[in-house]
Design a protein around this nucleic acid. Structure first.
Lengths: 240, 240
DNA sequence: TCTTAAGGTCAACGTCGTTGGCATAAGGGC
DNA sequence: GCCCTTATGCCAACGACGTTGACCTTAAGA
């Protein structure tokens, strides 16, 4: 009977584990995050999680519908942390920039978790809160609804997409990551100008840049585009 | 002795498999792509790959250093296919747009593979060719080297990031994906205006939009930004 | 205090990636 | 045409994995 999962709110009896631990959804999620942090994205297994909790691996299935369910809960937690780290100022551009960077940073703080969860829509409270917040910023700034939704869509997917991409790089085990990163100074920097003129000409610039995230740059470009759209709306609003 | 991998170029003896198949790197990569296409990202296992090849699973290890090596080869193949599907026109903006969409499409044609490979830098020939091509388009259009590299960085990471994100959604098994997609008409559309005014006000727009990729929109915004930067360079070039 | 079922443990299933040992046949040298 | 080397195939096995069904225990409500 590992099938029926009792939602956290309806839990009553909290029988301690053989080793005295009293379990809860949040304890399990936090333990999972710690494990991901310490042992990499392949380091989260039901057995290890059980061991870390001082419980039998199968106990986790009383709280989540498989590791996939746990994964979604982790994503929700990361969204919540991003929101907690953020404060509104009232300026839409400042606020969106800060929120985007907060989401990106929150995921990157747990790259292994980000890889697993970035592309999932959980529909849980904290994620909905983030969505409501973004739409609120945009509509409050004067974006028409269709524009607000378009910018929101681009904004949230951009944040998640780069979170997944950058987290993917960080999530590689050290050895593989080092190999990937040195690619720009080894393979690329050594290509002859005769066959690869453009890479050869810009090799130092590439080596300097390619191991950083492009997210901040692209985000700024997106905000520029949104600002232009907003200006257009306001002009039309005055004249029409 | 599953350790030593002989590079494809140095292979001489091609002993057929028990079932008569003659193996090669490309045959294995293509078979792997087909399996990913048919059975999802969890469908690529050494054993199943062996079965599909009519060979023992361990044979694959003669050609690739583990499934990770195979994964990198798959990524290289997808880059190559994107490049093959693309043709230059001479207009930098048209060319970049087409190339970006080609990369995105190439990965999305094999979502399960994209999820595995999008965040890896392989440094293999076809990937390098793509990089050289992009830099060539930009430098040919008159971008200064620092700008060319900045735009290149944003461009390629954007393409890969969205490939990974959108592929992640497609790669979910049908049932999980359907659940994710219906989130916008079920959970989000039903939030009361009292607590979530902005989502409630835009729910139909969200449902219509959120299951599509934001990539094309964001790419266009990025190209706008690049064009503005190029215009600035040209102005400075004339006056300075 | 009694009952009940939530929530813990245990044992097992089938699958996975990977490796060491072995068999065999392809292909070069003669 | 034969021999030798060794590339390349096959086999068997290891330990780890996710997940489940059966069972046990004890907390909480009556």
């Amino acid at each position: 009977m590992a099938k029926k999962v009792v939602p956290e709110a309806e839990r009553r009896r909290r029988r301690p584990t053989r080793r005295g631990q009293v379990l809860s959804e949040t304890l399990i999620v936090e333990t999972a995050l710690r494990m991901l942090h310490e042992h990499g994205s392949a380091g989260l297994t039901a057995r290890r999680l059980g061991a870390a909790l001082g419980a039998d691996p199968s106990t986790v299935y009383r709280y989540f519908a498989g590791l996939d369910g746990l994964t979604r809960a982790i994503g929700e937690e990361l969204m919540g942390r991003a929101l907690d780290a953020w404060t509104a100022t009232g300026d839409w551009r400042t606020d969106l920039r800060a929120l985007g960077l907060a989401i990106h940073a929150s995921y990157l703080a747990h790259p292994q978790a980000a890889v697993l969860t970035a592309s999932r829509v959980t529909g849980r409270p904290r994620e909905i809160e983030v969505d409501e917040t973004i739409l609120g910023i945009l509509r409050g700034a004067g974006f028409a609804d269709t524009d607000a939704v378009a910018v929101y869509h681009a904004f949230i997917d951009l944040a998640l997409a780069f979170a997944a991409l950058d987290a993917g790089a960080l999530a590689l085990k050290d050895e593989a990551r080092e190999r990937d990163e040195q690619m720009w100074t080894s393979t690329y920097a050594r290509l002859p100008g005769a066959t690869h003129p453009h890479i050869a000409a810009t090799a130092p610039l590439l080596a300097e840049r390619m191991n950083r995230s492009a997210y901040a740059t692209v985000l700024e470009t997106l905000l520029d585009g949104a600002a232009a759209r907003l200006a257009g709306t306001r002009r039309r609003g005055r004249t029409g």
